Amino acid sequence: MFVAAFIAASEIGLWVLLGLGLALRYLLRRRRASTVVLALIPLLDVALVAATAIDLHRGAEAGTTHGLAAIYLGFSVAFGPALVRWADVRFAHRFAGGPAPVKAPKHGPERMAVLWREWFRVVTAAAIASAVLFGLILLVADSDQDPVLLGWVARAWVVVGFWFLFGPLWELPTSRRTPQAGETADRASSRSSS
């Protein structure tokens, strides 16, 4: 329960710090303060790992929350900068007259590039989660806790496999073909899949 509460607090803290940082930057024009607040976001991840390690060290039975803490950390580190950029563009557009966000491509090589970048972030997230889990196994966990934590390493890489299957690999047949003159990307996509 302790780690589950910490995961929830980390997620809430992420959005609070992100909102505060962007509000400082664009509404109050306090760029330096904004940078400091946004730089605090990774500290939430450090606190989460520390809480997980303390809980395991105290003899808690390793479970779903400990595995999810490592997975959450991996995804937070791998996707965090992209999330901040995504929010920054939208906040700047809405409140500071910035340019409109560019829509993600739906087809073609540009779409494949987006899917590959996203998948590599997932690989990074799984690698970070695995490193954290192995670190917990080597430094904190006892022999009863080890198998549960190892199971979460496997789960992280199963997610990588499914993300590849339903991401880049799924899109591959439609990305090889570009729309011909006068043909919409949706029609080109349906024609290439038939």
Rank of each mutant, 00 (worst) to 15 (best):
M1P: 11
V3Y: 00
A4K: 09
A4W: 14
A5T: 12
A9I: 08
A9R: 03
S10C: 09
E11P: 06
I12S: 10
I12M: 14
L14E: 00
V16L: 15
V16E: 11
V16C: 08
L17R: 07
L18R: 02
G19M: 05
G19I: 03
A23F: 14
L24C: 02
R25E: 13
L27T: 02
L28N: 03
R29N: 13
R32K: 15
S34G: 05
S34K: 03
V37R: 06
L38H: 06
A39P: 11
P42H: 01
P42S: 03
P42D: 00
D45W: 04
V46W: 12
T52R: 09
A53W: 07
D55W: 04
L56K: 05
G59A: 08
T64M: 11
T64K: 07
T65I: 08
G67Y: 10
G67V: 05
A69Q: 01
Y72I: 03
L73K: 02
F79Q: 05
G80N: 08
P81R: 01
P81F: 01
P81V: 00
A82V: 11
L83P: 05
L83Q: 06
R85C: 08
R85I: 07
A87T: 01
F91Y: 15
F91D: 08
A92M: 05
H93D: 13
G98M: 03
P99V: 11
A100W: 02
P101M: 00
V102D: 02
A104H: 06
A104F: 03
A104Y: 02
H107M: 06
E110N: 08
E110L: 08
E110V: 05
E110P: 08
V114T: 14
L115V: 02
W116I: 09
E118F: 15
R121F: 09
V122L: 07
V123F: 02
T124M: 10
A126G: 10
I128M: 11
A129H: 14
A131I: 05
V132L: 04
V132Q: 03
L133C: 01
F134S: 11
L136P: 05
V140T: 14
V140C: 14
A141N: 07
A141S: 09
A141C: 13
S143P: 07
D144C: 05
D146T: 14
L149F: 03
G151N: 10
W157C: 12
V159R: 04
V159H: 05
F162Q: 11
F162S: 11
L165H: 08
L165S: 12
G167S: 01
L172F: 14
P173F: 00
R176N: 09
R177L: 11
P179I: 00
G182Q: 05
E183M: 04
E183G: 07
T184C: 12
D186Y: 00
R187A: 15
S189T: 04
S192V: 13
S192Q: 13
